[in-house]
């Protein structure tokens, strides 16, 4: 039976600096879903994800994940979620190994002393194999390239448990090969397992064929639907401004924008 994956009602959130990040956001997405939240820099995509996790508190309205309210039931939400933050939120001062990063996803759901069992290690190995990083098992995480680090963080989410994967800009700043691999692995994982995926991204292009729902965001909801439904020039202009162009090439229609980079609204 289908239930609601993510639903918001009149959600308004401020950045810690005081500026309004999201205003009167209302939408609902059913399970199972591979959902993409897209929009330009500063459109409130990451803020929406963090509010759903209870990391930020709305000033009005509410957001619920699998029926749990983000402010009152954040503990329940965090038991259900496997989260991949923006890569630049990971501190590289600690010489932690790749295996420890991946096992972190599983051990964080256990109680201290959080000992990794044989099963934990097997699942961590399998997750790293999926993203072609298993040979780096004993390698220091901070010596990897950007794309490799992102693949390891995705492996951490794959190795963890919980019915919802939430990824904040997992494709930003990665090479084309890592992007292709991450998208393919997430798409396959979504279809093979009973797992929902919510991904914040600037770039719908790489995930277009895997995504069930797209939320177009520019501080409020501009559009919600199947990838083909939101490919409307009028909607895209509202999100990306007049620089957005829809172009046709080799039988496909592409939306070209002048937006790039990662959201950098640090709290």
């Amino acid at each position: 039976m289908s239930e609601t994956l993510l639903e918001a009602h009149g959600l308004t959130v401020r950045y810690p600096e005081g500026e309004v990040a999201l205003k009167d956001v209302t939408f609902s997405v059913e399970t199972p879903s591979f959902m993409a939240i897209i929009g330009p820099n500063g459109s409130g995509k990451s803020t929406l994800l963090k509010t759903a996790l209870g990391l930020l508190r709305p000033i009005s309205g509410s957001i619920r994940l699998l029926g749990h309210d983000s402010t009152r039931e954040s503990a329940a939400i965090r038991r259900l979620v496997r989260y991949v933050p923006q890569r630049d939120r990971i501190e590289l001062t600690v010489p932690i190994k790749v295996k420890d990063i991946v096992l972190m996803g599983r051990l964080l759901k256990k109680r201290p002393p959080r000992i990794a069992s044989r099963t934990d290690k097997r699942i961590a190995h399998e997750a790293l194999q999926r993203v072609n990083m298993d040979e780096f098992w004993d390698h220091p995480f901070n010596e990897l390239s950007g794309g490799q680090r992102q693949r390891v963080l995705v492996a951490r989410a794959l190795a963890a448990e919980g019915p919802v994967l939430m990824l904040d800009e997992p494709l930003a700043g990665t090479d084309a090969e890592s992007q292709r691999l991450i998208v393919q692995v997430l798409g396959e994982y979504h279809t093979e397992n009973d797992v929902n995926i919510i991904m914040v991204t600037h770039d719908l292009n790489p995930i277009h064929s895997y995504v069930d729902n797209v939320l177009l965001l520019r501080r409020t909801v501009i559009g919600l639907g199947k990838p083909c439904d939101v490919m409307d020039p009028a909607l895209l202009t509202q999100v990306y401004g007049h620089s957005a162009r829809v172009v046709e090439y080799a039988g496909h229609r592409y939306c070209v924008t002048r937006d790039t980079g990662v959201d950098r609204h640090h709290d």
Binding site: I38, R87, D88, L144, S145, G146, G147, Q148, E169, A172, G173, D175, E177, S178, H202, D203, L204, N205, H208, V214, P227, C228, V230, M231, L236, Y240, A244, H252, R253, Y254, C255, V256, T257, R258, D259, T260, G261, V262, R264
Partner: peptide
């Protein structure tokens, strides 16, 4: 690709957002 460098936050460039 050990030599690969991050491109996040780089100069503004044209980007393909979606296709249909």
């Amino acid at each position: 690709e050990m030599g690969e460098r991050d491109s996040s936050g780089g100069d503004e460039s044209t980007r393909v957002v979606s296709e249909e």
